[in-house]
Design a protein around this nucleic acid. Structure first.
Lengths: 346, 346
DNA sequence: CTGTTAGCGCCTTCAT
DNA sequence: ATGAAGGCGCTAACAG
């Protein structure tokens, strides 16, 4: 079919058809009170007739505002990131902002996004999820001409940026303490790589919490009990295999995320090790399936972190000179059925 | 801190600072070959000095293209939708298009999106996931001035629109046949509401497939074996409770999605009914956790549907007068450990 | 190869 | 209450 797409009507078309000036049409579009009811309704009619919709591009250029919020997120596919995104979408649904998504899977892209996205012509505000800026980025971000909110970016040098975070040290400590209180002494920790080009912080802070709890209980940290690897269920499964093949294998494993905890559960199953009788497992996040699989875990308010991020951003948008704010979300130990006292088999 | 955000440099600033015309700068930005290497590198330097980034708003207005793809998706939060989105993001990552996301959770919003999004000033192309347009929308969509691709929108009247779909009738039929071949005769079906204002089609088509398989095997359809309800694990759980409390309870249940199948599994657990010995369960989708939970299911290529949608769209964008295409993705029966022959208890 | 200029569609003073 | 005109930053002829 060769239907030539008819060019959309412009504000000028409406104006001339209605026999008024473009300014009047503009006022009608923008609900200005400076239009007589009669003119308004007439213009409205013409708008309907012509099926006129104001061009967002033009309006953006003219206004200098884009009416869109940019979200920069790594590994969009991970459940925890998804959950945060959900919270963001939810809170944004009622506002008049559009959402554009920048997914980053490589460092190049991370850098490009950090540099190019926080510009007034691209977005009115930026939400960055789980990506701690490099030290070098920080001044850039601070000078950015649009407000930027960090979600789950926990970094010492960030004190001047507003962000919503969770106390990962405390969360991991609680997880480890739970295991210790149950009587475990040989506690493994399966995590992402502690140092990554992405500068993810969570596994690192959780390592701190883990070690703190150990220290407090007078249990010495054994390096061979901490394995790190690429994020993912299968990688965690392999690490767990390794841990569980140790001569003195751990009686409990703390995984840096629920996804990884599932990998650990699989490894236990592979090796015919009963959970929780022979091996306790605790995760982190409390994503939806955790409940279903009865995983003991540390709940962090993923969804809410998105909510809060948006509301901080909208505040900031309404009131540009606001002071930086740090909002700390609580964590909570959720005991289900993958943790229990160790068997006294020694 | 009262750092007045310094106004971003414009193409004109660059031009005057570099002692060239704006057109030259524009050419440099756009990699036009019509610039001498010397000028080019000089301009590039000035651009770097001034930290100049072209305004997308201005470029859009001028070009008449937005360099963004809009995705309209309902219930963004469902795993199947997410998976499709992943495929989309993935395929879009290498192209120069941005992605803006329109999440629809209400009919009003659905209608608004259908009407307003497919406009040239908002997006160069539109991907609609799992939302079958109303009959009334169809002419509008066909006349739209940007290409629109439907993903998972299976509707008779859509013959003229390009889309990627999966044969839900066949998939459901395969699921049901699998159960029948195992020896089941009393087979329940737990689904979303068949008729919804959103005009979702999958549960409806799957009902057809289910009934076809039954017919072919000479098993008469019992209305009380088909329960419909809001989508969700808990709702499915309740429906399964009802089915399993029937005087002659089903020995197998086909759930319209994996999420719902999990609800059914929970119900079985609640009622101490062993799976698969006393109850076979089969899902639909093969989302990631299905493997982990050993759920027998019908795999549909969710991720790939996103991929394919994008590539159809990009093709269309490159070659506007293309004919409508319908791409049918295959389904596959994945047998795991939630289906088995029925016990002979009667 | 490069500069000048006229839009792109809308918003916003500034007059009236 | 309304209209005319300038400008937002960039691209794309059109001249040189």
């Amino acid at each position: 079919m060769e239907t030539v797409p008819k060019k959309p009507a412009t504000i000028r078309d409406v104006a001339s058809r209605a026999g008024v000036g473009v300014a009047t049409v503009s006022r009608v579009i923008n609900d200005s009170p400076l239009v007589s009811p009669a003119t308004r309704s007439h213009v409205l009619n013409v708008i309907a007739e012509l099926d006129f919709v104001p061009s967002t591009s033009a309006r953006r250029l003219s206004l200098g505002r884009t009416m869109t919020i940019a979200v920069i997120a790594p590994f969009f596919t991970r459940p925890s990131v998804m959950e945060r995104l959900r919270g963001i979408k939810e809170s944004l649904a009622n506002s008049r902002y559009d959402l554009t998504l920048y997914n980053v899977e490589t460092i190049e892209r991370r850098d490009a996004c950090m540099r190019d996205v926080p510009r007034r012509e691209r977005a009115d505000g930026v939400l960055i999820i789980s990506l701690s800026p490099q030290d070098a980025d920080i001044p850039v971000l601070q000078q950015a001409d649009v407000p930027i909110i960090l979600i789950d970016a926990n970094h010492a040098c960030l004190s001047s940026m507003t962000r919503v975070i969770v106390d990962d040290v405390a969360g991991a400590r609680a997880a480890t303490q739970h295991l210790i209180e149950l009587g475990h002494r040989r506690i493994g920790y399966v995590s992402d790589f502690i140092e990554t080009p992405f500068n993810f912080t969570s596994s690192r802070y959780r390592l701190q919490g883990y070690r703190q709890a150990l220290d407090e209980a007078g249990i010495s940290f054994r390096p061979q009990y901490h394995l790190q690897g690429e994020h993912g269920r299968n990688q965690a499964r392999q690490m767990a295999h390794a841990l569980l093949s140790l001569p003195e294998r751990p009686t409990a494993i703390f995984a840096a995320s629920d996804t990884q905890a599932f990998g650990v559960m699989e490894a236990a199953r592979d090796l015919q090790i009963r959970v929780p009788e022979e091996l306790s497992i605790i995760g982190y996040d409390d994503i939806e399936v955790a409940e279903y699989l009865n995983l003991t875990t540390i709940r962090q308010l993923l969804y809410e972190s998105g909510n809060r991020g948006v509301s901080l951003l909208l505040n900031r948008l309404a009131n540009m000179q606001a002071e930086p704010v740090v909002e700390v979300l609580p964590t909570e130990l959720i005991v289900r059925r993958t943790t229990a006292p160790p068997m006294h088999e020694f």
